[in-house]
């Protein structure tokens, strides 16, 4: 009896171990795709945040870049944190993210080179029309956050370490508040899901304009605070350092970064969304 259960235990642990090894190996596999691709259209792997993909910006501009540079872009849309991790692991050729501090660290640690400003979008605070914290029309987002905390008004935070999440945490910090308690709801989900949950809970949340415009018709929450300087959100493009990973397509990555910051790329970014929402979702700001 004892022997038998011991055996089962060992087998079980072995199974877990093997599965973990497999998982580990999967992480390590060096991406090697371009080998037998025809030279006609080379593949470029781009890790970016869900916001650029969900908003439709990439669908709008990428075909033009692909035509101009003869590349086929594979978009991997994840959180900023994961996008940067992918760059650090050499799994992608270039990243397009929005978290200035993390981006600078990425470059400092030698994983990326030649970061360029591309554009910015802005965030807004939305909430139910009942507005329990009385922040509607407030020009300074810091004051609005103080009011929310004082009233213990429900606030849904993405809590997923994404660019948006970091932005929000930065604002709390700047307002010298440690958000805690039942009113502060950390959901650890993407923007769309966070919007949905905030709507369900009639709570406030911080949201990027692109997602807000795309989804607002589905829900009831309305803009409370917008235009505050602390709510701006710059995007940067960073090719992965070829000295770290010889297999990355640095040439393609650079071509992509240059195209984004070119006159044509900038113009397209500036006009995206005007047709559909009556306003641009991103403001080009390449220097």
């Amino acid at each position: 009896m004892f022997k038998k259960s011991k055996l089962t235990l060992i087998i079980g642990l072995l199974m877990i171990f093997m599965m973990s090894v497999l998982a580990g190996c999967a992480q390590e596999e060096a991406p090697d795709q371009s080998a037998d691709q025809p030279p006609a259209a080379k593949e470029l792997k781009l890790a970016t945040t869900t916001s650029t993909e969900d908003s439709g910006l990439l669908d709008y501009i990428l075909p033009e870049f692909e035509k101009d540079a003869n590349y086929k872009v594979q978009v991997i849309a994840v959180g900023t944190g994961q996008a940067i991790e992918m760059g650090e692991a050499g799994d992608v050729d270039v990243i397009l993210v929005h978290s200035r501090a993390a981006e600078d660290k990425f470059v400092e640690d030698g994983f990326g080179v030649d970061r360029r400003d591309v554009m910015y979008n802005d965030y807004l605070i939305i909430g139910s029309t009942e507005d329990p914290a009385g922040i509607k029309g407030e020009a300074d987002v810091l004051k609005a956050f103080v009011a929310i905390q004082e009233k213990q008004a429900p606030f849904v935070s993405r809590g997923d370490n994404s660019g948006t999440d970091k932005k929000e945490k930065g604002i709390w910090k700047k307002a010298e508040i440690t958000p805690e308690g039942d009113w502060y709801i950390e959901v650890g989900q993407g923007m769309g899901d966070t919007f949905r949950m905030a709507d369900e809970k009639k709570a406030y949340t911080l949201i990027d304009r692109a997602t807000y415009l795309a989804l607002k018709d589905n829900y009831q929450l309305e803009p409370m605070v917008e235009g505050s300087p602390d709510l701006l959100n710059p995007y940067g493009v960073i090719p992965v350092n070829p000295e770290k990973y010889a297999h990355v397509d640095f040439e393609g990555a650079t071509a992509f970064a240059e195209w984004l910051t070119s006159e044509k790329g900038q113009q397209m970014i500036g006009e995206f969304g005007v047709d559909e929402y009556g306003q641009a979702l991103f403001v080009p700001d390449a220097k």
Partner: peptide, 13 residues
Amino acid sequence: VLETRMGNFSTAI
């Protein structure tokens, strides 16, 4: 899911 999305692969594992 959350840890994976945040890039904390080892925590996820």
